[in-house]
Design a protein around this nucleic acid. Structure first.
Lengths: 142, 142
DNA sequence: CTTGAACCTCCAGTCGCTAGAGGGATTAGG
DNA sequence: CCTAATCCCTCTAGCGACTGGAGGTTCAAG
């Protein structure tokens, strides 16, 4: 059908050329046909597959999750509970990271707001880093 | 003074033992003295230095930024503009990531809310991934 | 003095790409 | 038909910030 070169596929999906080859190398993207000279030629199914991956990556899914979801999407008769579980986990993960980032933002805001633009010795940016006691929030590791 | 082993330092700071050695190997943490048998012995200055790094990492600073901030904190007479700039950049970065994550959360919520717990073929989780057109927000890559 | 935990070095792997070297293929124009 | 420009190929190595394991040594308590 389409018969896209790797560069054309890249333009259609926004996925960089080396990344496409990388996906193929780790078995995320089906191997395409080759031109007589050995260059990759992609069809409509590859385009669809790569858009799926791209979209999933944009939503923060890991490649392992996307592999599982891809596998499910090829078995349309099975229950979608597994897919639902993966998506819920991802949502929970995003919520966790949001909470962490909000705590971090709060602390950073305090740091820069208190900076009096003087010398290092009395700088709240440096002081706060040196002494966690100056923080009130419990910004744990994300 | 304190004369801490690497394990004791790890317990005091919450930084794992291999990570402490890693920080030393890349020049983030000063090399400590050694016991007669060759084991690391840390003093109060190392404790302070590692807490600084840990706190900065918790706030999302990169190790390069922390190296710069550490350098500044050793020159108490200089203007703290550089420190301020780094912190503001970090804050801007955090805001950017928050915005991205909020868009992603919105889309994920829609996905799981619409899941009717049927079969894969009519699953919104899979469908949404397959077709970006089903999204309304513009959750770009974080 | 013995035991067992903690320590040592070195190397390899994680995740998801990204970049470069050194070459071959394709295609548009003359 | 030839050439030049652009694309594409494989392979290897690197990023950030760790994390883990193998195989061996040292320390501290009893």
């Amino acid at each position: 059908m389409s018969d896209l070169s790797i560069g054309a596929l890249s333009r259609q999906t926004g996925v960089k050329v080396p990344t496409i080859r990388y996906y193929e190398s780790i078995g995320m993207l089906d191997e395409p046909a080759r031109s007589p000279g050995g260059q990759r030629r992609y069809g409509a199914a590859h385009l669809q597959q790569l858009r799926f991956i791209r979209h999933g990556r944009d939503l923060g899914f890991g490649l392992d999750d996307l592999r599982a979801l891809q596998g499910l999407s090829r078995q349309p008769d099975r229950s979608c509970d597994a897919a639902d579980r993966i998506a819920r986990q991802q949502l929970a993960d995003v919520e966790r990271r949001l909470a962490g980032l909000r705590a971090v933002r709060k602390e950073l805001k305090r740091m820069v707001a208190q900076c009096s633009h003087g010398v290092v010795d009395e700088c709240h940016v440096i002081q706060t880093l040196s002494d966690h006691g100056l923080c009130d929030g419990d910004h744990a590791r994300p």
